[in-house]
Amino acid sequence: MDDRPLPLLFGAHLARDRRRSAHTVRAYEATAARLMTFLSGHWGAAVDRGALGKVTAADLRAYLAQRRTDGIGNASAARELSAVRAFLNFAGGEDAELPRLRGPRVKKGVPRPVSPDEAVALAEEVAEDAREPWIGARDLAVLLLLYGAGLRIGEAMALTGADLPMGETLRVTGKRDKTRIVPLLPQVRAAVEEYVRLCPYGPAPAVPLFRGARGGPLAPALIRRAVRAARVRLGLPERTTPHALRHSFATHLLGRGADLRALQELLGHASLSSTQIYTAVDAAHLLDVYRNAHPRA
């Protein structure tokens, strides 16, 4: 009999039976361990497999409330709840009755950039829902290129094996065959490298870097479809699209002091007027912060 702790058994199940990525296994194991630690203090007793079958919606609400105090946002809370449900289902078996608890909702309103928390949660949720580990790694790499480097989805699809190995910068060919150099964060490079390592189709200089399940070029529609499904699960608004990740890249840089001309170069805009739209978006975001926080607003 395997006497490893339940979170580790859960992780082994995800890796062996569900073929989840190493990233997903680590994240879900961590959630399972957090839940058991919380319940032990919440109930004042040790938690075993049998006790997990008695978890109520009120217990889960209390757990999520504690996680909120850790600073997680709506998207992360929704992913946490998804992991908790998977763990409780594992502990109780396929026929287990799970407590019903609706995930957090995002208020609808004027379109705003996707927050950093939402962008990362979205990319990870898409990757975790993939049917094969290499496909999950592929989708994660694509979405991080959009959010972490400001690429258009068509620009990401146009990358080939000739762009490997990726260094600290990447040459991108955009609209009207205009080229630009964009910096690559270590996390983005690591995601691409992991995809290349897992992909069953070896890279070649004249072949698209991102491949479909049968080895052909990856269709952008597949990424858009995966994002649509993930944003529903996370409770994110309809404005959360692949292209919104590029908008968020621009807005977050501008909000942290990036020069407008430099941002124009990073985005590959032909004219500065195309880039200036982000000044209005960022001002609108600041106005929201003011209205919500200022005592005289």
Score class of each variant (00 low, 15 high):
H285I: 12
P200D: 04
L151D: 08
P186H: 08
A30C: 01
L245E: 03
D163F: 05
A51E: 12
P220G: 13
L60T: 00
A213P: 08
L9A: 08
L263D: 14
K54M: 08
K178T: 13
T275D: 09
H252G: 12
R68Y: 07
R102V: 11
M157A: 13
P165V: 12
A65M: 05
R291E: 15
L234A: 11
T37D: 04
R138I: 07
L272C: 05
R197H: 08
P205S: 14
R228C: 03
P133T: 04
F38G: 00
L144H: 04
P200I: 05
V188N: 03
R180A: 02
A130N: 13
V114W: 07
A229M: 06
R189G: 13
L81I: 10
G93T: 15
L267M: 02
A297G: 13
V25F: 06
E128W: 09
G257S: 10
T24K: 01
A213D: 05
R138N: 11
D2C: 02
A27W: 04
D139I: 06
G71L: 09
S248H: 11
A123H: 11
H269K: 03
S274E: 13
A258D: 00
T37N: 03
S21A: 11
K178L: 07
V207K: 12
L39H: 10
L184D: 11
F38P: 10
M1S: 14
A33G: 12
H294Q: 02
T69V: 02
T31G: 02
V196I: 11
A22D: 14
A293F: 00
S21M: 12
D288K: 08
L198I: 03
A219N: 15
V126G: 09
T251V: 15
L260D: 12
V227D: 11
V25E: 09
R26L: 06
D48G: 15
R261V: 09
P99I: 08
V281D: 03
A191M: 07
M1T: 12
H247G: 15
L122H: 04
P183F: 09
A137C: 11
L88W: 10
F90T: 01
A206H: 14
L263R: 08
A46G: 12
P237N: 00
R256Q: 15
V207M: 11
